[in-house]
């Protein structure tokens, strides 16, 4: 620090700083503006947005959008369902993934190579929609929330991230030392490995939670009742309801326009409402995030 203070900045350095700052600020604006726009658009009225009058400040401020959203009982049910699915799915996901990851990180696991190959195989080749659908149906999960919770709860990619994390951060010697004191694998995992792995657990939880929160496809395919739909599927229905097949056959022009009007009014409010929970979650896991992901990625 002391040394740096002595060296005088050249004009080139100053210029470099200025240019860099300008470029970074520009980049920041480019990234930030769309988000800002969503916020101001959500409190402006749909007509002004469509007419291109909302640019820097909200126009004809009204909370119609939010009033409409919060009046819609389906959105609340969706919120509740999404919360349940996200929590249970990440809980199951994190538990299974860390356990599998730990097992794979151990040299003394019998048949480790073979097992891992089978796991990885599923990353590249899947049965496809129809066979999966048939399996879900035959194990009796059709129409049950469990289908949605379980289907999104384990990803091989995350298992590999966990495995690499354990291989690099939990030295073999630690287990040797513990086992001399009579500690078995189960206890070692629960008492020593888990407390040392907060970073990777936070990252996995975030991955699973975001994936489940944003997902709608499994719910679309495996759920049959609107009362069980997660938030994203409800929103999709409200915003895209006009483009389904049947509406192509509906000649009810008024109904189509009504749907478009609703969609236009609540579009931006809905984005905010749907992203708030995830935005709230990020700061809490952010400090682990960089660390956990880096370790996972380097030694993938």
């Amino acid at each position: 620090m002391q040394k740096n203070a002595v060296i005088k900045k050249t004009y080139f350095d100053t210029g470099f700083d200025i240019v860099t700052t300008i470029l970074l600020v520009l980049a920041l604006l480019i990234v930030l503006y769309p988000m800002y726009f969503v916020v101001i658009a959500s409190v402006s009225d749909a007509t002004s947005i469509a007419a291109g009058k909302v640019i820097l400040l909200p126009k004809n401020v009204s909370l119609t959008s939010y009033r409409r959203i919060f009046q819609d009982a389906r959105i609340w049910t969706g919120y509740k369902n999404s919360a349940i699915y996200t929590l249970s799915s990440s809980l199951i996901g994190v538990t299974l993934t860390t356990m599998a990851g730990y097992a794979f990180s151990r040299d003394d696991l019998v048949g480790r190579k073979g097992l891992l190959t089978i796991y990885v195989f599923t990353m590249y080749f899947g049965g496809g929609l129809v066979p999966t659908y048939l399996v879900v149906k035959q194990v009796g999960l059709m129409g049950s929330p469990l289908a949605v919770i379980l289907m999104g709860s384990v990803s091989v990619y995350n298992i590999i991230i966990a495995k690499s994390f354990f291989t690099t951060t939990i030295p073999k010697e630690l287990y040797e030392a513990a086992s001399i004191d009579g500690c078995g694998n189960g206890r070692f995992f629960a008492v020593i490995v888990v407390p040392l792995s907060k970073a990777i657990i936070a990252v996995l939880a975030l991955y699973y939670a975001v994936g489940q929160w944003n997902g709608y496809f499994n719910a679309l395919i495996y759920l049959n009742k609107e009362a069980l739909y997660p938030l994203q599927l409800i929103l999709r229905e409200i915003l895209l309801g006009t483009t389904g097949t049947i509406s192509a056959e509906i000649t009810d022009v008024d109904a189509i326009q009504e749907m478009q009007r609703i969609a236009a009014t609540i579009k931006f409010g809905v984005i905010i409402v749907a992203s708030v929970p995830m935005l709230v979650m990020y700061p809490f896991v952010q400090k682990y995030f960089v660390k956990g992901v880096m370790i996972g990625s380097v030694k993938g």
Binding site: L129, K137, I221, N224, E237, G241, G244, T245, E249
Partner: peptide, 27 residues
């Protein structure tokens, strides 16, 4: 009840998998 935006997927799936309801209403 299928959200109309997901109608195509669901109907195609029902026919390909042979898991058919008694009736379809909606095209």
């Amino acid at each position: 009840e299928i959200a109309s935006s997901g109608w195509d997927e669901k109907v195609n799936l029902a026919f390909t998998s042979g898991d058919l309801p008694d009736c379809f209403v909606g095209g």
